[in-house]
Design a protein around this nucleic acid. Structure first.
Length: 392
RNA sequence: GGAGGGGUGGGUGAGCGGUUAAAGCCACCAGACUGUAAAUCUGGCCUCCGGAAGGAGUUCGCAGGUUCGAAUCCUGCCCCCUCCA
């Protein structure tokens, strides 16, 4: 049976590209941002709301769904789309990233990842085969290879070993998936690793693009390196990926990073940032991020962002959002999530349009003329503190 | 009228002679969050100087006293609460 997945490149301007992902659940315009629905839900939002915000594809997580409610359960309940009542395309992550983010609960060897459930402490093991079968069982439109993600700061030897494992696992995922009866309905993406070492990235890109993948992801970024480094590696890898396949930069999603990634030829991104940050009161505006809990919003009798067309900004004042957050009302989390998602998805729409019309450079410049990102030093400091707090 | 308990920083509430400008929690003020162990975490929060380290000055109902030293002990006064009449 013929593969029900393809990628069509429509326009390019410089490195930036506009295209379409054709999947069994519909066509997605790229560059696309995928809101993250880790546990079969984009936290606080309904599928209708996510769609209304402009999302054409979302990301689910095979690690979390494997643990709860279980791949078999989702399968029996009609697959992930039906289970969560999401009609559009879904991409699932393999669980490789969890092995990175869950610290002491996991142990990686050459053949897979052994880990303890963060839910009940039970012991499990993911191999490339199982990670692939899990995602086949969930029924996503696009599934990801199991890979090993390494934190920034690891030494070259460790990065190399993780990269080599990722390559070996990629072969196994390909071999496993091609035999599946799901193969015609699912795209399989490989993941390039290699940290911030240019030669390792090149080596990884060569190894991964040699395999019969439907698309290619850049993994192992946004894990602590500076933005300059992240952009540098993104550019380097994107240039080494085939032009006729989609390129997916994993885990990236601040407004400025999306603009810079698209400028370097990235077609897909996903990120928890817009929704997570929203739940903590940080909202995107054209000028940068603001904390809605700040005193200055207490009596602002106007939308947070008058230029925003999201449900929250069309219907409520900043003062009301401030109140909801101060009172810890659930609606605040929902409206904030809706706003940030709409901000990001609109940014993507605007970029697609700008590229198609050959004015992306100007658009990008216009973005930077207004947008002030968070101070890099502050980010690094707080990140360290966050990690320390989680350990202790 | 009789018996007892208590008054601590915006709130609550530890402390009961020095290591206490005074725990913790809440509130308040700010910051962070990038393939979600996240509606979480980190700072600040008497006043003044300092970016910070730190320094100086005023604090534990009010007024006296004991002591080298008091939120902590003593005396008086003012409030509050519980039980019995």
């Amino acid at each position: 049976m013929e593969k029900q997945f393809s990628f069509r490149l429509r326009h390019t301007q410089g490195q930036a590209r506009v295209g379409e992902l054709v999947t069994p659940h519909g066509v997605v315009a790229t560059p696309a941002f995928m809101p993250v629905a880790t546990q079969a839900t984009v936290k606080t939002l309904t599928p209708e709301e996510i769609t209304a915000a402009g999302a054409g594809i979302i990301l689910g997580n095979a690690y979390h769904l494997y643990l709860r409610p279980g791949v078999e359960a989702v399968h029996r309940l009609g697959g992930l789309h039906r289970f969560m009542s999401w009609p559009s395309p879904i991409l699932t992550d393999s669980g490789g990233f969890q092995a990175f983010s869950m610290g002491s609960l996991k142990k990686v060897d050459d053949d897979g990842i052994s880990f303890q459930s963060h839910v009940d402490g039970s012991r499990h093991r993911f191999t490339p085969q199982l990670a692939t079968r899990n995602q086949e069982g969930l029924g996503a439109d696009i599934i990801m290879c199991l890979d090993q993600c390494i934190a920034f700061g690891a030494d070259r030897q460790e990065i190399t070993r993780a990269m080599q494992r990722t390559h070996r696992w990629a072969e196994i995922c390909c071999e496993t998936h091609v035999l599946s009866d799901q193969a015609p309905f699912q795209a399989l993406f490989g993941i390039v690793q290699g940290g911030t070492f240019p030669d390792l990235r090149a080596e990884s890109a060569a190894a991964i693009t040699a395999l019969p993948f439907d698309g290619f992801a850049i993994g192992g970024l946004a894990v602590g390196e500076s933005k300059e480094e992240m952009y540098r590696v993104t550019e380097l890898v994107a240039d080494l990926l085939p032009a006729d396949k989609p390129r997916y930069l994993m885990g990236v999603g601040s407004p400025e990073d999306l603009v810079e990634s698209v400028a370097r030829g990235v077609d897909m991104c996903d990120c928890v940032l817009p929704t997570r940050v929203a739940r903590n009161g940080a909202l995107f505006t054209r000028e940068g991020r603001v904390n809605i809990t700040n005193r200055r919003f207490a009596e602002m009798d106007a939308p947070l962002d008058p230029e925003c067309d999201c449900y929250a900004c069309r219907n409520f004042t900043a003062a009301y959002l401030w109140h909801l957050f101060k009172a810890k009302e659930i609606l605040g989390l929902r409206l904030a999530s809706l706003h940030n998602l709409r901000f990001i998805l609109r940014l993507m729409e605007e970029m697609r349009q700008a590229i198609a019309q050959g004015r992306f450079d100007r658009y990008r410049q216009g973005f930077w003329n207004r947008y002030r990102p968070t101070d890099e030093k502050v980010r690094q400091q707080q990140k360290q503190k966050w990690l320390a707090a989680r350990e202790g």
